[in-house]
Design a binder for these strands. Sequence first.
DNA 1: GCCGGCGGCGCATGTTCATGCGCCTTGGCC
DNA 2: GGCCAAGGCGCATGAACATGCGCCGCCGGC
Lengths: 215, 215
Amino acid sequence: MSEGGIAVAVVEDDRITREGLSLLLRASPGFSLAGAYGSVEEAMAREMSAPPDVILLDLHLPGRSGCEGVELFKQRFPHASVLMLTVFEDTANIFRCLCAGADGYILKRTPPAELLGFVREAVGGGAPMSPEVARKLVTLFRRIRPDPEVVEAHLSEQETRLVRLLADGHNYESAGRELGITVNTVRKHVRSVYQKLHVHSKAEAVSKALRAGLI
Amino acid sequence: MSEGGIAVAVVEDDRITREGLSLLLRASPGFSLAGAYGSVEEAMAREMSAPPDVILLDLHLPGRSGCEGVELFKQRFPHASVLMLTVFEDTANIFRCLCAGADGYILKRTPPAELLGFVREAVGGGAPMSPEVARKLVTLFRRIRPDPEVVEAHLSEQETRLVRLLADGHNYESAGRELGITVNTVRKHVRSVYQKLHVHSKAEAVSKALRAGLI
DNA sequence: GCCGGCGGCGCATGTTCATGCGCCTTGGCC
DNA sequence: GGCCAAGGCGCATGAACATGCGCCGCCGGC
């Protein structure tokens, strides 16, 4: 980043958009183009002119999707921020990409000046998002409603592991196998968890533990 | 908002900060000051000069905390955006305020120009956040790990209500009573939910539905 | 030195669940 | 008119769960 400004790589299959972005990045002081590619595969195969600080990644790509690409880029360039740049603003895609490790989610309709601001924000350790995306994130978040009593509760390591397994659909027996303990011990832990969370069933325990961020 | 620009109310106990914000809002074209108050109680008691479009709300206040204030303001001014403006950037506070209904979370160190941008973003339906906050939100979000398949799933109204009841610890019988249907019908709905979410137990269903934001 | 929390194990019993089957109405879509 | 989704109802059975009881060892705090 030092000499040429923020090094940005672009992965975008639409030639016009890609060249537009390339032009913008080359023309803007404080930024430089680390490479422009039409697919995830191409970007992974070819050497970049500089280690990228930020990767602008389209979602809809031929071959490997941008969402899959996130993990690959994060592996290859652990210090780079990956920003999704896409027209898709549906919850499922946002979810998928952020969980895959994307550091931001920007809609394509974003004007160039703002886009550069987002790139700067990413380098500064932020998580740049278009307003619509931020709103969706907050809305999803709000549904969680944790129980304040339970948030304070402290589950032991073993108990936490157990509740996680139960949340993932294990029954007592398979959870016990997973933890290397007997069913009876599982029962014992479950009892203890129920007391701490003030619940009387697996489902309620999972619900409260999830909402309180305990698992 | 039409004549005087975006009407902004300020609730902040520190006099210097409050007056600084008031000055900024009065001096900036496109913005106007709807009122400046030292506490939630004061803001609720006194008539504002205009219905606020945006309320800038400090978190640490004498009397009722800003977090509690969020709900009151949202009740009184349903169309106003409430933006937290605080020095606290810990996860618990961010979580609490957003769940309470805040539309954004801004750190006090934000420069004035950017602050005005955030206010504009709030009016535009966004969820403005300081970069650090956005990053924390995304990190928290990642912990949820929703199943992308499930996010797409559509539960019917009745099914959603049922899963909510199950998450709150009801068994089939009491959930059925709550919904005014028989246990057998509950079973039928549960079956359908299991198919849609690809699960085989109450606990797993609740877990997936919660993570995917379906309930 | 004893208490409380954690971890581990065992047994028993009644309750609840998961899932198989089948059958009916209503309302929308083609 | 036929079809399908949604809602509703019923019965049966084996599996899983909730909760009662009791027992052990280890560790950290007072």
